[in-house]
Structure formats: structure tokens, C-alpha cells
Simulated assay, not measured.
Amino acid sequence: MKTVKSILILAVAVGTASFTTKAIMEKVSVKTSSITWTGKKVTGKHVGTIDLKDGFFTMEGDNITGGEFHIDMASINCTDLSGDSKGQLEGHLKSDDFFGVDNYPTAKLVITNSVKQGNTYKVTGDLTIKKTTEPVTFELERAGNNFSTVLTIDRSKYDVRYGSGSFFDNLGDKTIYDDFTLDINLSI
């Protein structure tokens, strides 16, 4: 009788284990991933890149259950300018007027929830820029081992107010729009 009980317990344990999905961490390749930014102003726009420092998805099968990504703010690069203009814009974006990279060298995105619909995930997370954390929601597309999204961020929510018409009057054609976009492509 004791042997039969043991066999039944073992069978239930093995059966339960076969239906339990274990969460795994999928590291993102910083070498094959990319982030391109676009910032707009009344008189035009600027574009550039910024580096992913590290990141991972927590996965259960094909479902994203979490994740965390760190962005190297000191890597801000403007790709539509050259020479002194390029250096001046990059320096200004890294200064306390914008992202204050000396005090805040990284930005962070933490995924708190994800709902899969086909090859798309509706993702909710917390984005930290400088000292401020705000919730964000976006759609993330998956194609094999690649994930992509375009994330629109309101910089004024993160105390990045320089040239913002939301905080300063009479800026005219010096106004810089609050929203900027990140075109994100991640590879695992």
C-alpha cells in the first residue's frame, strides 16, 4: 500500500510539473539592438541614437511576464548634424537643461504587465528618467527573436522643461515640443 501511495504521489508530481511553465530570463543583445530618437521643434527636428546598456525580458513560454532595461544616457548621439553643431546639441542634451547625464547616467524601463495578442504584446511599465518614474503603455511587436516598438514620451513629465511651451511663454520659433519618440528594436 505504501508503494502504491508513493507511485501515485510521484505520478501527480510529474504530471503537475509537466503543465507548469517556468519563467526564464531572456537577455537582450546590446550589440544587435538599437534605439533611435526623434525630437521636434517648431522649426524642424533632430534625430539620433542612444545605446541600450543592458536589458532582459522575463518570459513564460511566449508570454512576456516582466523585464528591465537600462539606457546609457551619456551615449546620446545626434545623427543629423556634424561638426560643432553636432557637439553643441549633444552637449546641451546631456546638460542639466535636458537629461543631466552627470547626475542621471541611466534611464530605466521596468515591464510590470504584458498581454499577448498574436505577435503583439500590450505592455505596461514604469519609465524612469532623471529622478522621476511615470507609467507607460505601448504595443510591442515580435518577429522571431526581435521585438520592436515606437514609444512616445512626454519629456515635461520627467522635469525636462527646456524650451517647453508648456512651461514658458513667448518662445515663438524656439519652442521645442514636449513629446519625443524612441524607435526601439531589441534582439534576444
Rank of each mutant, 00 (worst) to 15 (best):
V4C: 13
L8Q: 05
V12E: 12
V14H: 12
G15P: 10
S18G: 12
K22W: 13
K22L: 12
A23T: 08
A23Q: 08
I24K: 11
M25Q: 14
M25I: 12
V28L: 06
V28M: 03
S29P: 06
V30T: 13
V30P: 07
I35P: 09
I35N: 00
T36S: 07
W37V: 10
W37E: 02
T38G: 05
K40N: 05
H46G: 06
T49I: 06
G55R: 06
F56Q: 05
F57I: 02
M59F: 07
E60S: 14
E60W: 12
G61A: 05
D62L: 06
T65H: 15
G66T: 15
G66L: 15
M73F: 04
I76L: 15
N77A: 08
T79W: 04
T79G: 10
D80H: 10
S82M: 01
G83C: 00
G83P: 01
D84S: 11
D84H: 09
S85T: 09
H92P: 06
S95D: 09
D96R: 02
F98S: 03
G100M: 06
V101R: 06
D102C: 01
N103F: 00
T106Q: 05
T106Y: 04
A107W: 02
A107D: 03
K108R: 05
K108N: 05
I111G: 02
I111L: 12
T112K: 03
T112M: 04
T112N: 03
S114L: 11
S114T: 12
N119P: 11
N119S: 15
N119F: 14
N119M: 14
V123W: 03
K130S: 08
K131V: 04
T133L: 01
P135R: 14
V136T: 01
T137C: 04
T137H: 08
T137Q: 07
L140K: 00
N146E: 11
T149K: 02
L151D: 00
T152R: 06
D154F: 08
D154T: 02
S156I: 10
S156W: 06
V160I: 15
G163K: 01
S164W: 07
F167C: 05
D169E: 11
L171A: 07
L171Q: 11
K174C: 03
D179W: 05
F180T: 03
T181Y: 01
T181S: 09
L182G: 02
L182E: 01
L182V: 07
D183Y: 02
I184P: 00
S187M: 04
S187I: 07
I188P: 03
